[in-house]
Design a protein around this nucleic acid. Structure first.
Length: 504
DNA sequence: TATTGCGGGCGCC
DNA sequence: GGCGCCCGCAATA
């Protein structure tokens, strides 16, 4: 995160945010403390980039120019809840639809559908047969209990030129498929093979993550544009100079709860950023970095979020803050009692009642003080972008320098989800397994984590950029008309080594 | 048909 | 009173 030349590192700890007087106008949002219930919201000179996958306690300030912010859009299935305050819109998470049999798709991905927002529609979803034709399981709602046993909530209000969003809680379930996927599937429902649906579902999450991971913030693009131009002039080999940095010892990947801001694209909430990469400015990294000193992460406190995708680096410009609260102190002490090797994985089983560890007061997972904050980050509505199982090669030149460097950031680049769906349909049924095999599915990773009791090998994640650079299996072309993009699978593509795990 | 925003109402703490 | 949650309604896509 680049904040008008301000240091990218957040001062830790931040002062206690409540109650505080409204800060002076146009103060950097990073330095601003506010609460959604404040009578007057602070004015800031810059805004966060929209993130539809915000997670954890966070406060974001969006510009009123952001359509998504105005709509209070979210990748999570959030339903409106009445807070009896006309000035504040409150939403709570509905969780995710999972297969009761916990089946796996051929590619190893799991089923994680998006619950309908409408109660009636949601009731219809539940109990339906798993979209995986090879599975006899039923769809079940995995309720969100990430906020002291209650669903994660987010409240938003508009004030002046900003849209203030405050999230409370950390989602304790896999991400549902993105909104656009559900809609697109509905449009194409009927006569479609359920297998396609299931496979698409598996792909959707990974692809949306992938896309998001490739999309920098606008601010990032600005700051990187010049550098990227220089790199291009130096040649592709120079672009890959960061490769050695990407493979790190697995013992160093655990992030911490000490978020710092940078200009790269890492997964905002709990990225697998090794210590040595904390300052790395590779475009493959998210912008929030967690250093490894804090045992909170090392002990699995936020293990799920980290698991759910190092690839889903949503542009994050959230105002991360940390408070000095007794609860947090206790939590810290608790964590410090554990050695770095003593991971405390959050046991997660959708079929089981919420773990007591998730309840309020349990130190290892969620700080249930609404004002306490370990925050997450921001990205953009993935459903508005579309999904693909490839990457945007650097050579992809999209009309201008900024876009060419970071094409995924430009709204004009993204096709609608339905368009992408069509692409998937053609490739899913005829593209063979090459594409499917490249999927990294966050839910799968989550389950793997549960099975292994530890994190996936970091190298797999950090290896991803290399794989992407080497093995893009899609071609992208733009007709130049209506921003219409064509994505074609490269049938000639074969992984360098089919036995090597590839997460895309 | 589903989403979204709004609001009444209830129960719990 | 704050909060979560249920329900219904209307506008909209």
């Amino acid at each position: 995160m680049v904040l008008n030349g301000m240091p990218i590192t957040m001062p830790v700890p931040m002062p206690v945010p409540m109650p505080v007087p409204s800060p002076p106008a146009t103060k950097s949002r990073v330095a601003v403390d506010w609460d959604i219930n404040d009578s007057k919201m602070p004015s800031v000179g810059e805004f966060d980039d929209f993130n539809d996958w915000s997670n954890g306690h966070c406060r974001l300030i969006y510009s009123v120019q952001s359509d998504e912010a105005r709509k209070h859009a979210s990748g999570w299935a959030m339903r409106n809840t009445n807070n009896h305050n006309v000035n504040i819109l409150k939403k709570s998470c509905l969780g995710v639809l999972l297969c009761s049999a916990k089946c796996k798709l051929p590619n190893g991905a799991s089923v994680h559908l998006r619950p309908a927002i409408c109660d009636k529609a949601r009731r219809k979803q539940q109990g339906k047969q798993c979209p995986n034709r090879n599975c006899t399981g039923r769809l079940e709602i995995q309720a969100c209990r990430g906020h002291c046993g209650y669903p994660v909530t987010q409240v938003g209000r508009r004030d002046g030129n900003g849209i203030y969003l405050q999230a409370k809680g950390t989602h304790d379930h896999p991400r549902p498929e993105a909104k656009g996927s559900t809609e697109a599937r509905r449009l194409l429902a009927g006569g479609r093979r359920v297998r396609s649906l299931a496979v698409m579902l598996a792909r959707e999450s990974a692809l949306s993550d992938k896309l998001s991971s490739l999309r920098p913030t606008k601010r990032q693009a600005k700051t990187q544009s010049i550098q990227e131009s220089k790199r291009r002039r130096m040649g592709a080999s120079d672009v890959l100079q960061t490769k050695p940095e990407l493979v790190v010892p697995p013992t160093t990947y655990l992030p911490t709860s000490t978020p710092t801001h940078s200009t790269n694209f890492n997964q905002s909430q709990g990225s697998y950023v090794p210590a040595g990469l904390g300052s790395m400015t590779s475009q493959w990294n998210g912008e929030i970095h967690y250093e490894t000193e804090d045992p909170s992460y090392a002990n699995g406190m936020y293990s799920y979020d980290m698991l759910h995708s190092p690839l889903s680096a949503h542009s994050s410009t959230g105002s991360y803050y940390q408070e000095h609260k007794p609860q947090q102190l206790q939590h810290s002490q608790y964590q410090q009692q554990l050695s770095p090797q003593q991971h405390v994985p959050v046991s997660y089983d959708p079929s089981q009642p919420i773990s007591s560890s998730l309840q309020c007061g349990m130190p290892s997972y969620e700080i249930c003080d609404d004002t306490s904050s370990l925050t997450s980050s921001s990205g953009y509505c993935s459903e508005d972008y579309g999904y693909y199982n490839g990457y945007l090669p650097n050579s992809l030149d999209v009309s201008n320098g900024s876009q060419s460097q970071n094409p995924s950031q430009d709204a004009s680049f993204y096709t609608t989800s339905s368009e992408i769906f069509s692409v998937f349909e053609s490739t899913l049924n005829g593209g063979g397994s090459s594409g499917v095999d490249l999927i990294y599915d966050e839910a799968t990773a989550y389950q793997q984590h549960q099975q292994q009791g530890t994190f996936p090998h970091l190298t797999n994640y950090q290896q991803e950029p290399q794989d992407q650079m080497q093995s893009g299996d899609y071609y992208y072309s733009n007709t130049g008309v209506d921003n219409s993009w064509n994505i074609q699978m490269d049938a000639t593509y074969h992984p360098v080594n089919s036995t090597d795990p590839i997460y895309c």
